[in-house]
Amino acid sequence: MATTTPRSPSRARTLGSYAPMLVLLLLAGLSIEEGLRLLLTVDPAAQADMAGWYVLVLGVVLAVTSAFAERPSATEGTGDSAGDQPAGAPSRRRDLLVCLALVAAYAALLGTLGYVLAGVGVVFVFLRVISGYGWVRSTVYTIVINAVFVALFELSGVVLPAGILRF
């Protein structure tokens, strides 16, 4: 997937190109901190020293490898071509955000509304907003898709939160 569009060689390095290195270094830093904390503060009788050493050593390894291999100069030309565009057209960017919001909404609604209503909501919004179907079409598809889900889960005995629709 990395070969579709030729990239401009003089691309300026943005904060984005440093992001992977920074995220990995953050993870490494947290691990080193946790490792030291376990080694220094916990009662030796708890036999936690190995637990500390393990994350400490891994944290150091991660810090070294990411500082070495994730420098933007070292990683140029390895990613998806899409990464070079300023995150696509605005409408696509909106689609991505809506999609992420839908997963978050599903997590938030599953416990309270139950899996049926949460599923109906997510599917409907996706069809209407991202796929751009009309009201009628979206409604019909929503009903059909969720009917299949409900039948599948009920038949296979999978227990999902019933939420307010329980009976």
Binding site: G121, W135, I164, L165, R166
Partner: peptide, 18 residues
């Protein structure tokens, strides 16, 4: 308006079950 309607229906259902 459709969202309001859906919300109203959801509230009604919640009320009934409670």
């Amino acid at each position: 308006p459709a969202f309001t309607r859906v919300a109203a229906a959801v509230c009604a259902a919640a009320l009934l079950t409670s």
